[in-house]
Design a protein around this nucleic acid. Structure first.
Length: 892
DNA sequence: TTGTGGTGT
């Protein structure tokens, strides 16, 4: 394909003209005191003007192909200066010499060849010991780093990107800031060359905006362009807004959204895209005529904080013009709200009432690179909606998305006459725009040899940072609670043993199982002269942001959930992270000032073996919930659904199978009535939903709804180090029937204590989890009533409760192996060996027949949340499922 | 006799 590049040239004079026109319109419309039409007119003018410029440019200019700007959606263009930056995997680099002498600290420095340096595009290495006393016999950890390299891309060199190696070690270590201020260094993360962020609003109006097409014809790229700043009265906030990198692209973004069905915006952290773009859209009139601009986030906390920020910037009350919706919390006003932030899950639920999302004019899907289950489903559905609603605009925003594959996904081949409204040049091919971020340089260090024990490597690295590096907090990424607790202990001990230099350290664990109070410790600022060391799971990678982190230690691993559709088992396994994750982790070090990231894996591994992106959640999850959601939206051909990442056919088939066995789908794989539709309405795993529906007839819906609420929160128990105390606490609530009944006892106790947090603490129960249980329970009761179920308590008749559980979970029935001395069970469905999880109250009780809620696989398959049943209930509840396997009366 | 990365409706 020909790399055809066209360019839109806009002269300063014309920009001023436009600004004048806009100001005139604004002024005249202000007289009319009609804000809505002002913005609508503004939008029209921008559009008309842009179109005329595009035409002129193509007609008059023969220079299109002389552009020296290479289009690559992954790579930000810096300040319109046409310099391309290599993606870090080609270019793992350290940009400036800061701190190197500190690190070397008199320890030997030697020139070595990197094992993978054979080819000429890789610069030679040097390595050095960071001079620490190892905890083990492993010897000191040796880190290596590459020399600085800066590249510029030139015309005709798309394939070849020359690397310019800078001077060697001695030069680097001499002048600390030698490179700071040079343009376009600092390539890996953030604030490139320190020349960023100076574009004080209109001050950047000297650059010319450019428009480029790439070979795919229609993937557009803008570099910096001047922006027409609006004249609002909120001076300081307005200034802050204008300082954000995204501000320079305001006009470009509005133009792209105007002219393209889908716009993909690649922006690093700190670019301001999430808070600014919805405001730009509003200012440009996209919320006129009662329409709403939506912006989705994967996490509740992000929704709340972004909405609060935007309402502050706009000087409006949260919940009026700017609002947000998350589960249990709708802070919007249907008459007033024009910009609405919401979780992607909420938007999916909204589709069940309004499948075309007709009240939204623009939907911005943020953090799309995370590829969460609901983001992917949402993207698939939005693509479908676009075909019915060509006027709907989508913005896909993400940090490190594979923009081209996303663009390919949204590339529609429409072969029908254009509808009205498309005649103003609306393009169905997605546009891509990159916006640079605003962070600081992060130096990356790799171990020279693979480490065999990342826990010990972690400890020695932390100790050496503490010894050799200037003040600044350390964030360590490990995999789970177990590792983290061990590391905290080891580092604390090591600090005590190593004398005065290590006194000023506060070591804190961070994972979701901690109580809120323990989590909050991590957010308190470190006392004067003390260094905070936070040992965290992935929770600090995206969900929580810690201020004050200067050093990151990355183990290269995280726990990830994988689903095996053949065995129907979800596993939680320690797995290597992706490059995208590694970059995200490193970026956590550059938030307040230049930072350093120590990777406990080799550079060779990072470059050659680490996958560039993680596996989308869609491809490693049980899809039963997702399938029923799509069915409820009327998508019959699930197997043919156009996903951003197709799940395996096995997991699709498995999901359909489960739903069929639950009586949710009929022989034609259509939702049954009423059960199928009822199950789809409930925001739960289909098996739990089925259990609730069955409880209606059995007369125990109140209890079952309570159990369902508890099953759908992570864990109601506090994780504590001394496990014995927790086990003892559990015994206070333990019921012979099993965990579900035990949960009911806990819930009753919680109510009797008047929902007291003190009571929770005393009984090793997670107070926040219980509060969530109450909320979920209320929601489920409301939905159940809407579905026409009767809310009824079975009082103390636990047999009907167990029957209701059986009605939902009959497929998970297990039988104790006769003569088994170690509590081995086999599943009825597939004769798999399983054991009762030690956290269950039925552990070591081993009733003959049990049903489990879920399987967890470690060295054995463990059943979690187990209840004992009578096998005859299985055939009662699911004759279709068990009729082919009559129970053998000869076996005990 | 053993263990719960993180989200979300």
């Amino acid at each position: 394909m020909v790399n055809q590049i066209s360019r839109l040239d806009i002269h300063d004079q014309q920009i001023d003209q436009l600004q004048q026109v806009v100001n005139e319109i604004k002024a005249s419309l202000k007289l009319l005191n009609e804000e809505r039409s002002e913005s609508r007119e503004f939008r029209k003018v921008i559009l008309a003007w842009m179109k005329s410029q595009e035409k002129n440019s193509v007609d008059s200019s023969g220079q299109e192909l002389q552009s020296d700007l290479i289009h690559d959606p992954l790579i930000p263009v810096v300040d319109g200066k046409h310099v391309t930056i290599h993606p870090p995997e080609q270019f793992t680099t350290i940009q400036h010499s800061e701190g190197i002498s500190d690190l070397i600290g008199g320890v030997k420095v030697e020139d070595t060849e990197h094992p993978n340096c054979g080819d000429s595009k890789t610069a030679p290495h040097f390595s050095f010991s960071i001079g620490l006393e190892p905890l083990t016999d492993d010897g000191p950890k040796v880190y290596s780093r590459k020399k600085n390299r800066v590249t510029t891309a030139k015309v005709g060199q798309l394939g070849k990107r020359p690397a310019i190696a800078l001077n060697g070690v001695s030069n680097q270590s001499n002048k600390r800031n030698q490179l700071v201020g040079r343009p376009f260094e600092g390539l890996t993360y953030g604030r490139r060359g320190g020349s960023r962020g100076g574009g004080q609003g209109r001050g950047c109006g000297t650059e010319k905006p450019r428009l480029l097409d790439d070979e795919e014809g229609g993937v557009l790229f803008y570099s910096a362009s001047p922006s027409s700043s609006s004249t609002y009265g909120y001076a300081s906030l307005e200034k802050q807004r204008q300082r954000l990198p995204v501000f320079k692209y305001r006009t470009s973004i509005l133009y792209l959204v105007e002219t393209h069905s889908t716009t993909i915006i690649v922006g690093e952290t700190g670019s301001g895209k999430t808070t600014q773009i919805p405001q730009y859209l509003k200012e440009a009139g996209w919320a006129d005529g009662g329409h709403i601009i939506a912006c989705t986030q994967p996490r509740r906390l992000a929704v709340q904080s972004v909405a609060a920020r935007v309402s502050e910037e706009m000087g409006v009350k949260l919940g009026e013009e700017v609002g947000y919706t998350i589960r249990f919390e709708d802070v919007t006003n249907s008459d007033l709200t024009r910009i609405k932030f919401l979780t992607d899950g909420v938007l999916l639920r909204e589709m069940m009432d309004d499948p075309l999302l007709s009240k939204y004019s623009v939907i911005m899907v943020d953090e799309a690179h995370e590829r969460s289950l609901s983001t992917d489903i949402l993207l698939g559905l939005l693509k479908k909606i676009q075909r019915r609603r060509p006027e709907l605009r989508l913005i896909i925003a993400s940090a490190t998305i594979e923009a081209k594959s996303m663009a390919a996904f949204f590339q529609t081949r429409r072969r029908r006459p254009r509808l009205e409204g498309e005649d103003h040049g609306l393009r169905t091919e997605p546009a891509i725009l990159s916006v640079e971020g605003r962070g600081y340089n992060v130096q990356i260090f790799y171990v020279e040899e693979p480490v065999s024990d990342y826990l010990r490597a972690t400890v020695s690295t932390v100790m050496s940072i503490h010894d050799k590096e200037p003040m600044g907090d350390i964030l360590v990424f490990l995999t789970g609670q177990d590792d983290i607790d061990t590391a905290v202990q080891l580092i604390t001990e090591e600090a005590q043993n190593s004398g005065k230099s290590s006194l000023g350290m506060i070591v804190l664990p961070l994972y979701s199982g901690l109580t809120r109070a323990d989590q909050d410790l991590v957010f308190s600022p470190s006392p004067r002269g003390k260094r905070k060391v936070v040992i965290s799971t992935n929770i600090a990678e995206t969900s929580l942001t810690l201020e004050g982190i200067v050093y990151v230690v990355d183990s290269g691993f995280s726990k990830q959930r994988f689903y095996n559709p053949i065995t129907d088992i979800e596993n939680l396994v320690v797995a290597p992270i992706s490059k995208a994750s590694a970059r995200q982790r490193a970026g956590r070090a550059g938030r307040i000032r230049p930072g350093k990231c120590y990777r406990l894996y080799t550079e060779d591994y990072f470059v050659n073996e680490m996958p560039s992106h993680g596996i989308p959640e869609m491809q490693r999850s049980n899809l039963a919930s997702s399938v029923i959601q799509l069915k409820a939206l009327g998508i019959d051909n699930i197997l043919g659904f156009d996903w951003p990442a197709s799940p395996s056919s096995e997991s699709m088939v498995r999901a359909l199978e489960v739903l069929y066995s639950l009586g949710v789908l009929d022989d034609d794989a259509k939702l049954t009535s009423p059960v199928g539709f009822q199950v789809a309405e409930l925001p739960l795993d289909p098996m739990i939903s089925k259990m609730i529906i069955a409880s209606d007839q059995l007369g125990c819906s109140e209890e079952i709804i309570t159990v369902s609420a508890i099953l759908s929160v992570q864990s109601i128990w506090i994780s504590v180090k001394g496990q014995r105390e927790l086990d003892e606490a559990k015994l206070r609530f333990a019921a012979a029937e099993g965990d579900h009944v035990t949960f009911l006892n806990v819930y009753k106790g919680f109510l009797q204590s008047n929902k007291s947090s003190k009571w929770c603490h005393k009984n090793f129960i997670n107070y926040h989890a219980m509060k969530k249980v109450i909320e979920v329970r209320e929601q489920l009761r409301r939905i159940a009533q809407r579905l026409g179920l009767t809310l009824k308590s079975c009082e103390n008749d636990m047999q009907v409760l167990r029957k209701a559980v059986t009605a939902g979970f009959f497929a998970n029935a297990c039988r104790l192996e006769p003569y088994s001395h170690n509590g081995m069970y086999k599943t009825v469905r597939s004769s798999q060996e399983v054991y009762i999880h030690p956290s269950s109250v039925l552990f070591r009780v081993n009733p003959k027949w049990v049903i489990y809620n879920s399987l967890v696989s470690t060295d054995r398959q463990y059943m979690r949340n187990v209840i004992s049943i009578d096998p005859s209930w299985l055939r009662e509840a699911a004759p279709h499922f068990y009729q082919q396997q009559p129970l053998n009366p000869n076996r005990p």
